[in-house]
Each structure stands twice: as C-alpha cells, then as structure tokens.
Design a protein around this nucleic acid. Structure first.
Length: 420
RNA sequence: CGGGGUGUGGCGCAGUUGGCUAGCGCGCCGCGUUUGGGACGCGGAGGUCGAAGGUUCGAGUCCUUUCACCCCGACCA
C-alpha cells in the first residue's frame, strides 16, 4: 500500500470526547472512527487488525472442530419468548424495532436461542452429535453507559461458539479443549502471560462459568489471582467457601483489575429444552442436547491490545496483528532514493511482505512519527544518508537499534523476524 | 438512570460585566524556501457559535426547553 493512495490521515491531537487511551490512540492513528457513543467504524488499517485478530481466533476454533457460519442479526421474538428472554424486564439490553403494526423484531445481542433453534433442523440422533458451530457477529446491546473506547460498546464484534453434545461427559471434554484453545489465542496475541482463567458465577447446570481475564487497570472487573496456580476468581464469587473448594488461600491471592476477554459457559439443557432441541440416544430414548457457549470479544481485544501494546509514541502491534509488517519511508526527493524505494517496495511486495510505503513528500520527522504512531513492527528507511551507509536502515518498533541492510537481504530478514 | 462536566470551521481551543466585520493553533489550498524526529515565509478557502424558543435596540455571552458527548456510580461480553 502506498501511503499516497490511502485515505489514512493521522492526528497530533487527541479527540476531546475520548478519555480512554485505546480510543485516543486508535483514532489518532486513523484505525477507527467514532460514530456515536459506544459505536465505532473500522477504517482500512483498523479493519485489517480486526481481521487479523479474527484469523487467529478462527484458526484455533477450527483446530478444535469448530464450523464457522453466520447467524442473522434480526431476531424474531417468538424463540426468545420461549426461553423468557424477550421481555425488557428480563433482558434489558435489547434494541427492538418493528416490521409493521403489532409485529416486533429484535437486534441480536447474543445467539443461544437462534443457534439452538436452528440445530433442531439438523440434530435428531446421537449420530448427529456433537456439533460445534461458531460465528463472528456484530452484537447490539443497549448499554446504559458505554465507555472505555472499544472495551464497552453498544455495537461490538464477538466470536461466539456453541457446542451441542450428547451428555455432560462429552461436553466436559470439549469445554476443556476450548479452554486450551483460548489460552493459545491469547498467547498468540501476546497477552498470554497476563490472561487468567477465572472462576465466575455459573447457572443451573454448572456451579461456575469461566472467564478469561487480562490484567489491566482499565478493566471493569476485579479478580483475585493466584499467580503460581495461574488461576483467578472473580470478585463476584470470591466467598470463603468458594476459595476453599477451589483450594485457594485467601492470603495468597492478589487483587487486580482485569478485562474480560473471553468466557465459557455450560448451559446443559437450559435452552435446549424450551427450544425443542432433543436427540434420540442409542436406546431409543429422547434426550435434551447438552449445550455450552464460548465467547471472545474481538473488538474488545483490539481495544485492549491498543491499550496494553503502546508507548508514548503510539501503538505497538504484536507481530501477526499489525495491519502490515513494514513501514517503508523514503526521505528526500533525490532520484536515486526515489528509485530504490520504489524498487524495494516492489521487491518486498513480490516476496509477500506487507508494506506501507510512505512515498509522500513529507519531512522525516513526520514519517518517523507516523511509523511509530501506527505501530508497524518494522521501519525501513531509505535516504541519501542511508545509501551512503550502504543500504536501508531497518529498525524494530520496539527497539532503538538501527541496522543497515541490503535490498536482497530484506525479505529473508523480515520473514525470519516475523516468525520469531 | 442518579451525580458532575462539556458543546464555537475537519481537529484542539480562546472569546471579559451582553456591543461593532467571531479569533488563535493544527489541518487544508496556492507560491517560494526547506528536508534525519510532526519546518518556515507570504497569500487564501472554510463558521446557521449543538438545536428550538425567549429576554433585549443588540445574544457565542442572559433565561427556558431539548439533543449530543465525556467522567463517576448502578448494570453488563
């Protein structure tokens, strides 16, 4: 991508209506645009980051047998009435509208009901189970107060996976598998070491649900950590009996603020029964499908990563999430510099290394500042001065060290570095 | 939804006890000089001062209503 072709524009000043660091940085860097409170649009570079986050999640969900699909956003009241989750008195986050007189529709804020209902079409025998289906969906929720930039919006993107198993044993095995997959997801995003499996309130079919909480001061949740066991307990369930049951010592726990980046629930027959999701077992007996749901906040992760992976100069995307690998900046307008910059851009692009080529007629300081603000992992500079030093200057976003490299060495170096 | 705060060119802000063609910085356009950490000079464009109503000879400024946004709280992935 040539910078001169992008509609991207960065800002020096922070927007006055954003307090949260993640929103300030992402807006300054031109990754997102605020439409209204708690509602953001994703601009080309922000969209790439979002897609990169999704891709990591997608790979890990596919690896444990997930089948990706996409449910509708518009929801019919009927199926939600059958689980008593349509009434505003029961669920207060519904955005609702009407098709016509006396005919309501809702905008999906979660999808247990439609997914369960849909499965009645495909599940009738024990041979049809288990089923693991997931989607990336824009969820709409009428939050009374959205805040913290991308961390709590009225419109946000979530990965939600639903498992449909024959029985608890089969369910529990998959539940454990999801837990492992989630840890891989967070590891790959560079927040594995500060993300804890956390015990939270359960429901009729499980004593606890589990959250994945990433330690951060911007978090809304308070958790108690056992750092040696790599476990945490949400404050909401941190009674003495619970700690005892989990084998945790209260005085060994540390209180921290954390951001919920994922959760996994055991639902059992809670939605299957009212929605008519049954199967016939080996003995010819009808059984309710044993279900679970598993969420990861995709857009929330983007906000959290911006919050955590940043410094005083701007964003610092982990490899694999950045919108591209290299920020190539040409300095000055000498013929030779221009020629070699174009050459390197073509060369890297051909080798499959994603590049933003800053070909604008701007001063060096501005290009350096943009490379930093955008948080691109590598900065490659070509100028009269760098040519005199023997090639291109390569610098990592996370380091101040500059190395001189030749064009032919670039792609190998960048490919190797990207894998590390 | 309770408490606090803010709305003035695309962005960030100033605007005194009401007073004259509403300013400044950034950004934008043109010309020139510049070129290793967000340059400088000269000349430009761009505003129903959030909206509606009211008081007044006169309202960005005072009053009423309303909308939006931010922060704290309650609620929530």
């Amino acid at each position: 991508m040539k910078r001169s072709d992008l509609f991207l524009k960065t800002r020096k000043e922070v927007p006055s209506d954003e307090e949260a660091k993640n929103a300030q940085l992402l807006i300054r860097a031109g990754y997102i645009h605020k439409e209204m409170a708690g509602v953001y649009s994703y601009l080309p570079l922000g969209f790439k980051v979002l897609e990169n986050i999704k891709q990591i999640v997608r790979e890990e969900m596919d690896a444990i047998g997930g089948e990706e699909m996409l449910l509708s956003t518009l929801q019919h009241p009927h199926i939600w009435q059958s689980t008593d989750r349509w009434d505003d008195a029961k669920v207060d986050v519904w955005f609702k509208s009407a098709l016509g007189e006396g005919s309501e529709v809702g905008f999906g804020w979660s999808h247990e009901e439609p997914m369960s209902r849909l499965m009645t079409q495909f599940v009738s025998s024990y041979k049809d189970l288990p089923v693991y289906a997931y989607q990336f969906q824009t969820k709409l929720r009428r939050e009374l107060r959205s805040k913290s930039g991308l961390l709590r919006g009225r419109e946000f993107i979530m990965k939600d996976l639903y498992s449909f198993s024959r029985n608890r044993e089969e369910h529990d095995k998959f539940y454990a598998l999801v837990e492992q997959a989630y840890h891989k997801v967070y590891d790959r995003m560079g927040i594995g070491s500060i993300t804890y499996k956390t015990f939270a309130s359960g429901g009729p079919f499980a004593k606890y649900s589990h959250e994945f909480q990433t330690i951060s001061d911007i978090g809304e949740d308070t958790v108690y950590l056992d750092e040696t066991k790599k476990l945490a307990v949400n404050q909401e369930v941190s009674a003495d009996e619970v700690l005892q049951e989990l084998g945790l010592e209260r005085n060994g726990l540390v209180e921290k603020k954390a951001v919920e980046v994922g959760n996994i629930f055991t639902f059992g027959a809670r939605y299957s029964e009212p929605l008519g999701l049954f199967y016939t077992d080996e003995n010819g007996v009808q059984q309710p499908v044993f279900a679970g749901s598993y969420g990861i906040g995709i857009s929330r992760l983007m906000g959290l990563l911006a919050e955590i992976k940043s410094d005083e100069h701007g964003l610092v995307w982990p490899a694999g999430l950045a919108p591209c690998k290299v920020y190539l900046a040409s300095l000055g307008d000498e013929e030779e510099v221009r020629r070699q910059a174009n050459d390197a851009y073509g060369y890297l692009t051909d080798k499959g290394v994603s590049v933003i080529y800053d070909d604008r007629d701007e001063r060096p300081g501005e290009k350096f500042a943009d490379a930093d603000l955008l948080g691109i992992p590598y900065r490659l500079v070509i100028s009269q001065k760098s040519l005199e030093s023997g090639g291109f200057e390569l610098k990592k976003r996370t380091s101040t060290e500059v190395t001189i490299v030749q064009k032919d060495g670039l792609s190998a170096l960048l490919t190797k570095a990207g894998q590390a």
